[in-house]
């Protein structure tokens, strides 16, 4: 127990120290080299800016987080459902796969301006684009996960008289879960980028919008402050997914 806590402590402490060291060097270079802050602000500058501007950053950060979560769910749910159908029924595979591959081939981010025309400055384009982009990797991992069920398990469930729901709940879903979570872990980070980019292109709120405003006034310090907030959101969300994995998949705690 103590050993485990010590190990976790080290796992957190070591990267934190590395990171802190890097910031100190950064600070030193900027101060000694007298680099102007519109080119590269010192860490102390933008950290102070976060404290100073915390209300604005919190508001836009919350907007962005909300869009990430909505968009991720809007992509994950159809990804999982279609993934199951494609893995399970050949007909679905034949009907749906070409469509899915077409969506994947589309450079979806180019749809953002088009959506500005269609939907204006609403939340809908952000959610839709994030969903379109997160959908595919989640679907691919779900297909792989559901396909990894040994067909002889179906012999066992059929001879047990298991219903569709029982087979899904007791065998298929838990078998596919590790692959599904690995899809989630990759996609949640992608979703952060997508939302910020779309906000940057067409929005009147969110971190991406804040970056745009900062650029207008050459406020580099604010851009770095947004960067810190944005990556914090990314780290927190991927940690949340990892926590959910540990909660739902306790047998993987090896």
């Amino acid at each position: 127990m103590i050993a485990a806590a010590a190990r976790t402590g080290r796992a957190v402490l070591e990267p934190a120290l590395w990171f802190a060291g890097l910031l100190v060097i950064w600070e030193g270079v900027v101060r000694l080299g007298e680099v102007p802050s519109f080119l590269l602000p010192a860490p102390s500058d933008f950290l102070a800016r976060i404290a100073e501007d915390h209300a604005r950053l919190a508001y836009h950060g919350a907007q962005t987080t909300k869009m990430i979560v909505y968009g991720f769910i809007a992509g994950a749910v159809p990804g999982l459902v279609l993934g199951y159908m494609i893995a399970r029924w050949r007909l679905c595979e034949q009907l749906l796969y070409p469509l899915v591959v077409f969506i994947q081939g589309l450079p979806k981010i180019t749809l953002a301006p088009l959506m500005l025309v269609w939907f204006g400055f609403s939340d809908f384009p952000k959610i839709l684009l994030t969903a379109l982009i997160t959908f595919f990797p989640i679907l691919v991992d779900a297909v792989a996960g559901f396909r990894s069920v040994d067909r002889r398990h179906y012999y066992l469930t059929r001879s047990t008289g298991a219903s569709w729901w029982q087979t899904f709940r007791f065998i298929e879903l838990p078998t596919a879960a590790p692959a599904i979570f690995s899809g989630f872990k990759i996609t949640i980070v992608v979703a952060v980028t997508v939302v910020i980019v779309v906000e940057w292109l067409n929005s009147n709120n969110g971190l991406g919008y804040l970056v745009l405003r900062a650029m207008d006034s050459s406020d580099t310090t604010l851009i770095f402050a947004v960067l810190v907030v944005g990556s914090t959101i990314g780290v927190v969300l991927s940690y949340a997914v990892a926590l959910a994995e540990r909660w739902f998949l306790p047998w993987r705690r090896r």
Binding site: D150, R152, H153, Y155, L156, S159, F170, I171, P174, T175, A177, L249, W251
Partner: peptide, 14 residues
């Protein structure tokens, strides 16, 4: 009926 295969086919999560 009870069936036993060459592989144990136990569910790794149980």
């Amino acid at each position: 009926v009870g069936i036993v295969f060459q592989d144990h086919l136990l569910l790794e999560f149980r």
